[in-house]
Amino acid sequence: MNIIKFLDQFSNIDLKNASASRREMFSQLGSYGKKAAFAAIPFGLGVTKSNAATMAFFGHVGPLNLALTLEYLESDFYNRALLSNVVPSGRPLDVYEQIAKHENAHVALLESVLGSDAVDKPIFDFTLGGAFDPFNATNPQAYAQLLTLAQAFEDTGVRAYKGQAGNLAGTPYLAPALRIHSVEARHAAEVRRLRSAYYNMELNDNGLGWITLNKQLNVRPMVPAAVYAGEELTVQAGVNLTSLGNGYSAESASQSFDEPITGEEAVAIATPFFA
């Protein structure tokens, strides 16, 4: 059974009974435990100390399996893009090759860390129900679609890793997760710039390597709005950035801090790409 069907199965769990359900899953680890562990991500980690073993187990396996799922999505996307003959040679192909190398390395690393707890690799569908045909070299819109998808995946990846950092605090997995997080941010900046270069919009505020408010270039196809929802914050830790010093613009303030998303939000963005 694939991940989404598993997520659906668990979507009606009563939150009050979630920890009991997790205990049950924990005791049944083996045949489907690793899938259950991933399915448990959306329900938070509000367990008591009496569940110490369960807490520790789900403490890192859930976040790392979320990460692995997103890395599977990215690596599958870039590997297929490289085989498609859609990506122009020169800078675009070089960028995609370099990113593919990193995403494949992330998959290998997370699989190795998770061992038998690793979630199965899902089957992906990048056509969005027929709206996209990004790997078809005869589709004149294919490269534009690749650019949009790459930007969506990279900016989402940055937000998703950021959102899981706290869940990995105090474990040996936080450091590697942070080190992947900043690599995704490097990727994100470059695919954003590659896309703005394609449209000759390098000087547009919304085409830079950083995210301005919750905006993006006004070119089709657009990145799903959910990828940038909440990025427009200008208050951090209760401090209004625009009133610091001699004052800063809301644009600069929002660019200066990237915002996290929860596991649920990351899964919601990725869900349309699960076959």
């Binding site: 900043s182 941010a185 990727h187 710039r193 801090f257």
Partner: peptide, 13 residues
């Protein structure tokens, strides 16, 4: 984490 990814975007750019 909110700051480091912006630094990484700078470095990349």
């Amino acid at each position: 984490g909110k700051i480091v990814s912006v630094e990484a975007r700078h470095a990349s750019t």
